[in-house]
Amino acid sequence: MTTVEIATDPQAHASPGVVRRPRSSWRSPALLLALAVIALVALAALLPGALTRQDPLVIHLDQSFAAPSAEHWFGNDQSGRDVFARVVHGTRQSVLIGLGATALAMAGALVLGLLAGLGSRFTDGAVNRAVEVLYAFPGLLLALVLITVFGNGALTQIVAVGVASLPGYTRMVRGQVLAVRFAPYVQAARTLGHPSRTIVARTILPNAFRPLVALITLGVGQAIVWAAALGFLGLGVQPPAPEWGAMLNAGRNYLQQAWWLDFFPGAVIILTTLAVTVLGRFLQNATRPGSPS
C-alpha cells in the first residue's frame, strides 16, 4: 500500500499565485520597541519632571557648550542650559502640535467627507473642487502661508498643519463613506426604518472611520515632523521656550564646536516619528480586510 503524505503547511493549500500576508503580532520586537519609545515620549509630555529635575530655562554661562556628561546627559547649549531638560520639556509642545493638528484635520475631514459621500452630486463636486484647490499647494508651503498671515504660536501651528493635512484626510473619508454607503448592513438598517441620522451616526460613520485609525497614527508622525520644520524655520514657538525644531535652528550655527546641540533633538524627532510609523503600519496591517486575526 502506498503511503500518502498529507501536507500540514497551510501555505500548501493556498491557491497558486495567492500570497498570504504575514500575521501581525504584538510580540514583534520592532513593535515592542516602538511602543516603548511612544510610552517614554508620552511620559515626557505629561510628566517631564519624572525624567529630569533640571530647569530648561535656567542659564549657566560658566557651563556654555559643556559636552555630554554623567551630570548633563545631552550636554549644555550656548547659554549653558541643559539640553536633555530642554528636549524633555519640549516634548509636550511638539506632541501637542502633532496631536492637535491631526485631530483638527480629521474633524474637518469627517464633516467634508460625509457631505461629499452622502450629499448630492452638487455637494460632492463642490467639496472635491475645494479639496483640489488645497491640493494645489504643497502641505508645508500651505502651512507656511497660513503662519505668515496669522503669526507665530502653538495654536497657529496647530491650525496651519491641520489645514495642510485636511485634503488628504477628506479624500480618504469620502472614499470610505462611498464604500460603506451601499453596504448590505446599511441597506438593512434602512429597510428596518431607522432614521437617517441614526444610520449615519451608528452604522456608516463607525465603519468608515475604523480603517482610517492606522492612517491617523501615521499622520501624527507627519504632523510632528512638519511642526519641527516650522520651528526650525523660526515660525513656531519662539525662544527661549524649548521646542525640538527651534532647538535645531539654534544649534545649527555651532555644529563644529557642539555637535550635540542638533544631534539629540534630531535623534528624538527621528525616533518618535519612526515609533509612530511602526505602530501605524502595524495597525494598518491588522485592520486590513482579509488579514489574519
Score class of each variant (00 low, 15 high):
F137G: 08
L279T: 02
L40E: 06
V18D: 09
M247Q: 01
A109Q: 04
L115T: 11
L96V: 12
P289M: 09
G168M: 05
R81K: 11
R174L: 06
L40Q: 05
V173R: 06
P10G: 09
D124T: 08
Q93M: 14
D82C: 03
V88H: 09
A14G: 14
F65H: 11
Q187D: 15
L115E: 03
Q78R: 13
S293A: 15
V145P: 01
L35T: 01
V186F: 12
E132Q: 13
D124I: 06
L32N: 09
F209H: 07
T91M: 11
Y185I: 09
R23S: 09
L215C: 01
G75C: 04
G251F: 05
G280L: 04
W26E: 04
A101E: 04
G251P: 00
R81M: 05
A227T: 01
R171W: 09
L110A: 15
V159R: 11
N253C: 00
A189D: 03
Q284W: 00
T272C: 14
V4S: 09
G266T: 11
S291N: 10
P68H: 09
L118E: 08
L279Y: 02
L99F: 12
G280I: 02
L114Y: 12
V213W: 10
V159W: 12
W226F: 12
I199R: 12
G231A: 08
N207F: 12
I269R: 11
T198W: 15
T102L: 02
R171K: 13
H13Q: 15
A107L: 14
T170A: 10
T277S: 11
R53Q: 13
A258E: 00
G175P: 08
A275K: 10
R20D: 05
L43K: 08
H13Y: 15
Q187I: 03
G234C: 07
L261G: 01
D124S: 14
L99C: 06
V159L: 15
R174N: 06
Y254K: 03
G153H: 05
G17A: 10
Y185P: 09
F264E: 00
G251K: 07
S69N: 12
P10K: 10
L205K: 10
E71R: 14
I158R: 08
L271W: 06
M1I: 08
G175M: 10
V83M: 07
G153P: 05
M172E: 06
Q257P: 02
I38M: 12
G151V: 14
A160C: 05
D124F: 03
A160R: 03
G108V: 01
A109P: 02
V173E: 04
H72C: 04
A183R: 11
A105Y: 00
P265K: 10
A45F: 10
